[in-house]
Write a protein that binds this DNA or RNA. Structure first.
Lengths: 254, 254
DNA sequence: GCTTGAGATTGACGTAACGTCAAGGTATAT
DNA sequence: ATATACCTTGACGTTACGTCAATCTCAAGC
């Protein structure tokens, strides 16, 4: 069997550059060079390459490998037994390493959950307060104390899962809004999808959804600099205004 | 406590050159430079160095380590998961390699003949090959070569962003499945959410989605020990079966 | 005060094992 | 005849430092 560089490299799973490099260093010379200057490898080279890769896997330097393979008393069977032993050992090492990574990962995840929970609690309280400050009076007047109490209850009961889900929605909204910013068209597909996501996201926080309230919140986004800053800095300049316009269109047409 | 390069290098067991190099790349800047131009390290730097060496031990690149240390809560889990994946891949490859050594040894001893392809069976580690090995045969039989080819094409073109997104989905799936395991109910909210996430995840790998194919893959999860082991070890005992059942319900009812 | 040896500094080049262009020649199918 | 895939030889880039060289600083001993 005869192979060119590409053929052998495909066979062995190494790059053509690697084979040229091995030729250059004398580690693996081709069987011959044809009239066009192409490297041609034969079966003996294939076998030698296999040996090289075994040793390479063990972490030996190419220099060392060459010395081993070119030693006059090199014994293939002995070498292979040796490979087997060392590879098994290496696998045990790798297992230990993986276990360590897993442990670290578990610890970090634990940390993150605690962190998120804490963040979440703080975030919840903040939002309840903000909600109360923004809408409390108005809603109280319109729908009575009971509605406000219910809303706040819902808030407090909001589970971690809900929070996670709403976070994911927020991320999706952010992505969509970024896309929408490229065209800047509030009636476009991306912007309308963003508005829809925003409605879904809202449903995690409001007891009942109404188009008017949604539109009202949209207006707030440009009227209140805290919101504008939040969206513009996280998503891009003009994001708050774009979202507002998208919501206005969304609530009117859907 | 304050240290010069040599003192810190002795303390931490790294060379002074390493510390200078870390300074140069910004990975570990000294606390201050004294009037003679000496680098002076403080306690915070000692702690950071410890972190660096820990992650270095795990095999992460200095670039990655810097990213982790400079953006703690965001990057670390993803980076470690990523690394874990790589290490696991490496482990699987090692297993195959050991098998190849055994085979080669048997061939040499028994004068059996191995063809050139067999000689390198354990060495290749491309994702596509692996994907092909895992899903190829089954899917090929059921849905034809074209589907597999297209899927491989999709893989090749899959961008880093997609990869990241699919990793996140995988993580979310894992979380949801763990939650579902607590009740064990495949029709429950968590399990159904897991099935949905699994569908989303799949969409990153399959060109076209069909309920039948999805259900088929679900069945594979319990029929094939490779999958069962994977899910059960990573998520919990019975995870594979639960996911299968959830998928079956999901594909029938949605 | 002077010497001496350890330790500090900034370059700058070296190393391993390739990866990645660039510029050009070759084989082959249409 | 041309497109495409594959071949060639440079030559520079990469990672994580090692290894000089030339020079400066510090603490100790005489």
């Amino acid at each position: 069997m005869q192979y060119t560089v590409k053929q052998l490299s495909d066979l062995a799973g190494v790059s053509a550059r690697t084979l040229r490099f091995y030729d250059q260093t004398g580690l693996l010379k081709p069987e011959k060079i044809n009239t066009s200057g192409y490297r041609i490898y034969g079966t003996r080279q294939v076998d030698r390459l296999q040996q090289i890769l075994f040793y390479r896997e063990l972490g030996l330097s190419l220099k060392t490998i060459q010395a081993i393979l070119d030693a006059p008393d090199f014994n293939v069977i002995h070498a292979l037994s040796d490979h087997h032993k060392k590879l098994s050992e290496k696998r045990r090492q790798l297992d230990r390493l993986i276990a360590t990574v897993e442990k670290t990962l578990a610890a970090k995840k634990g940390e993150k959950i605690m962190n998120d929970t804490e963040k979440f609690e703080g975030f919840k309280q903040e939002l309840i307060d903000k909600n109360e400050a923004l809408y409390g009076k108005e809603i109280r007047e319109k729908y009575g104390d009971e509605a406000v109490r219910q809303s706040n209850e819902k808030w407090k009961k909001m589970s971690q899962a809900d929070y996670d889900a709403s976070s994911r929605l927020e991320e999706a909204l952010s992505t969509e809004l970024k896309r929408a910013l490229k065209t800047g068209d509030p009636a476009g597909q991306a912007a309308q999808k963003a508005a829809e996501l925003h409605r879904q996201w809202l449903s995690y926080f409001w007891v009942s959804y109404s188009k008017e309230a949604h539109a009202g919140l949209g207006n707030l986004y440009t009227a209140d600099t805290r919101f504008t800053d939040y969206y513009d800095s996280r998503i891009g300049k003009g994001a708050a205004k774009l979202l507002r316009d998208a919501i206005l269109i969304y609530t009117k047409t859907k």
